[in-house]
């Protein structure tokens, strides 16, 4: 499943549509601590987190994850959204907890 295909399922709210739409999502990745994610998030993964600030976007960009899903319906600041757009990162928002969201993505990947 590519990022574009995930977007087209319209399961999650679209926060920003980034550059790498044709990137194949390899797997979901869950972590809320930035330097752990920095060291471990696989390039091409779908990063599910409740940590939604501009530093999350810096980590997403540097690790080249395929997209970010903000779980628990966390409120997003304007600066977060504009930075995501500016950096070309696809961000979605889920009202579900981290595990449920990642599990749902995993199911989609197995389809």
């Amino acid at each position: 499943m590519t990022v574009k295909e995930l977007l087209e399922k319209k399961i999650y709210e679209e926060v920003s549509v980034g550059d790498g739409l044709s990137t194949e999502i390899s797997k979901p990745y869950c972590c809320d601590l930035l330097s752990i994610a920095m060291g471990k998030a696989p390039a091409g993964s779908c990063w599910v987190t409740v940590m939604a600030n501009v530093n999350t976007l810096a980590v997403a960009s540097l690790t080249e994850v395929a997209c970010v899903i903000v779980a628990e319906g966390m409120q997003l600041e304007e600066s977060f959204v504009s930075k995501a757009v500016q950096q070309g990162i696809t961000v979605l928002r889920s009202s579900q907890p981290v595990f449920d969201t990642a599990y749902a993505v995993q199911k989609l990947l197995e389809e």
Binding site: L33, L34, S35, M51, N55
Partner: peptide
């Protein structure tokens, strides 16, 4: 509260 403080920054720098 911003997601820092795991104490993994310097180990990451060493590793990478």
């Amino acid at each position: 509260s911003m997601g820092f403080g795991a104490g993994m920054g310097l180990p990451n720098m060493k590793k990478y």
